[in-house]
């Protein structure tokens, strides 16, 4: 009976109004057997971090198309740390220029997926890198 099931938060911070990508990823996580908490559009970093803590997720997945990734990713990571939840990894994707990726990773983002990545690739990365916290 005792079995850890992976729980992931999929969130869309910022102002862009397109969540097709986020929904496709959420759906593919479901099909991979994960529990996905989907919080909808236009979430503030504060709302996302609060949901991550209440839902005891194993990772936070952000989808950002607005160009504000250099602000939003580090902000979510910083708030998680402030609230004593810095152990929850953050990864994500969206329209993010290659040049920005090293900086985001240096800020603590575990992985960035750019347009064209298959959901299979994302799922295999999650299975290899995100584990239910003991």
């Amino acid at each position: 009976m005792a079995e850890r099931r992976l729980r992931l938060l999929v969130a869309k911070p910022g102002l862009d109004g397109h969540d097709r990508g986020a929904k496709i990823v959420a759906r593919s996580f479901r099909d991979a057997g994960f529990e996905v908490i989907y919080t909808g559009l236009r979430q503030t970093p504060e709302q996302i971090v609060s949901a991550a803590i209440q839902e005891d997720v194993d990772a936070v997945t952000l989808s950002i198309l607005s160009g504000a990734h250099n602000t939003l990713f580090p902000r979510v990571i910083e708030l998680l740390r402030q609230q004593g939840a810095g152990d929850i990894p953050v990864f994500g994707g969206g329209i993010i220029p290659e040049d920005d990726i090293p900086g985001l990773k240096a800020a603590g983002v575990k992985e960035i997926f750019t347009p064209g990545t298959s959901t299979e690739d994302i799922n295999s990365w999650v299975k290899a890198n995100i584990h239910p916290r003991a």
Binding site: R30, E35, V36, I37, Y38, G40, Q47
Partner: peptide, 15 residues
């Protein structure tokens, strides 16, 4: 797996 989406309608209370 599951998609848990009930929070969407309650997100104003998140903080």
């Amino acid at each position: 797996g599951a998609i848990l989406g009930d929070r969407i309608r309650m997100s104003r209370h998140a903080t």
